[in-house]
């Protein structure tokens, strides 16, 4: 390698990086600020309990067997284990009455695994897509 090339190959990257110091950072100060979720984001589920007919399509299609049909308020409704869920939205796609939808809620980390089981009551409390 010629001397000129090696010197420019060392100086250029350094000047590039120094210039970046004066630019707006690419990162956000999480959790004070975070990315705006997109319109069709696949977050935590929301169950419109009144629309659910208890057909069990969601439970049958779920690739991870995360959905179980349980008895609630006199009819069968889905109970989702979000620890097993891969958020593929196949259940939402298959739902014949559009009772299951997905919200923008992505911050669902928990300390206790057993709390990740969302029954029909908890699912219908989620904030629906804005």
């Amino acid at each position: 390698m010629s001397l000129f090339k090696s010197i420019s190959g060392l100086v250029k990257p350094a000047t590039r990086i120094i210039r970046i110091l004066f630019k707006k950072p690419m990162t956000l100060k999480f959790p004070q600020e975070s990315l705006e979720p997109v319109k069709d984001y696949r977050g935590k589920h929301f169950l419109d309990f009144g629309k659910c007919v208890g057909c069990g399509m969601c439970s049958r299609i779920c690739p991870n067997e995360a959905i179980e049909m349980v008895e609630f308020n006199g009819k069968k409704s889905p109970q989702i284990h979000l620890g097993k869920c891969c958020f593929c939205a196949l259940c939402v796609e298959k739902c014949p009455t559009k009772a299951l939808t997905m919200t923008h809620e992505a911050m669902i980390s928990l300390y206790d695994k057993s709390l990740a089981v969302y029954g029909p009551d908890k699912l219908s409390q989620s904030v629906q897509n804005g």
Partner: peptide, 14 residues
């Protein structure tokens, strides 16, 4: 073009 300067033509990388 920026990566050329930063990485691909970087003397250390070469």
């Amino acid at each position: 073009v920026f990566y050329d300067d930063l990485f691909f033509n970087n003397a250390t990388v070469i």
